[in-house]
Design a protein around this nucleic acid. Structure first.
Lengths: 148, 148
DNA sequence: AATGGTGTAACTCTAAAAATTACAGGAGGG
DNA sequence: CCCTCCTGTAATTTTTAGAGTTACACCATT
């Protein structure tokens, strides 16, 4: 899956931390249960988010808390924290075109022109969505679900 | 690699067909040599492009030719032809969140709100680039290379 | 009818992603 | 002060999606 599902797991974790972080200690085991991912995977994700400054993790005793306002956490920032070169992984050029063919020799440079634009556009798109938007969606959906 | 490299191979093939299609019979073996991909992979790609109407393939005797003006062939159209649901594969949600957790129960719907926008943005971005642009890049780069 | 193509299905191989195992090290409670 | 619960990270295994391979029916042209 693309823009690896890690990113979705990260958002899941952040929502969880925002909603429950003040009431209980949010550990990797807890997040592992909620997301259905492995605790080590969670720890790696959490670790990346921590290094970017999005969250803090209490050392030794454990527990994660948000470290900055929701509006400052964009999807771009999350993706970047987790997978620094995610945008170059979005679209790939086949690796072994023939250097003997005029097309094969140049295809890499040719595609890079267009692909660079697509990558930039994607980043802009990701920057336009913040955790604030997502949490507001969450509250809206949760409320709607409760009514049924 | 994402927006699978098939898409790059497809563009490679289309450039090749445009440049040499009138001079020689472009077969899957020839394209296989130029792209460095397997002939069957090429045939599958060519077959998808054909079904979309982008190219024609002479049955029996072989050989592919472009079927519509370069300006009408967008990257979006190519991606769509090759991988009809490429945009939903761009970003994935982790598959097994816990239904017992309020976050886990709703995460799928929540993320879909934002992800849908990102997918739409990506499609727009892909629609803005045509084979005409790419071939013009190709000629420019080829010319620059020849000078050295 | 021989040659050289395409179209596709079925299977195998490969490499990237995720899970698992393992363990060193910190904080806080009893 | 040591025991428990947690994190951080390395190393290994498992899983899975993607690409390659094999195989063969079918078609046009010579």
């Amino acid at each position: 899956m693309h823009i690896s599902t890690k990113c979705s797991v990260a958002i899941h974790c952040l929502i969880f931390i925002y909603e429950y972080g003040d009431r209980q200690k949010v550990t990797s085991d807890l997040l592992s249960l909620s997301t259905g991912s492995n605790p080590v995977t969670i720890r790696n994700i959490i670790s990346s988010l921590r290094k970017d400054g999005i969250i803090s993790v209490k050392f030794g005793t454990g527990g994660a808390t948000l470290n900055c306002p929701l509006g400052e956490i964009t999807l771009y920032r999350i993706c970047k924290a987790i997978e620094p070169d995610f945008s170059s992984k979005l679209i790939g050029v086949h690796s072994l075109p023939s250097p003997l063919c005029p097309v094969g020799k140049n295809i890499h440079n040719v595609l890079d022109c267009s692909y660079q634009k697509i990558r930039t556009d994607l980043c802009e798109s990701l920057k336009s969505i913040t955790l604030e938007n997502i949490i507001s969606d969450y509250h809206y959906i949760q409320h709607k679900t409760d009514l049924n």
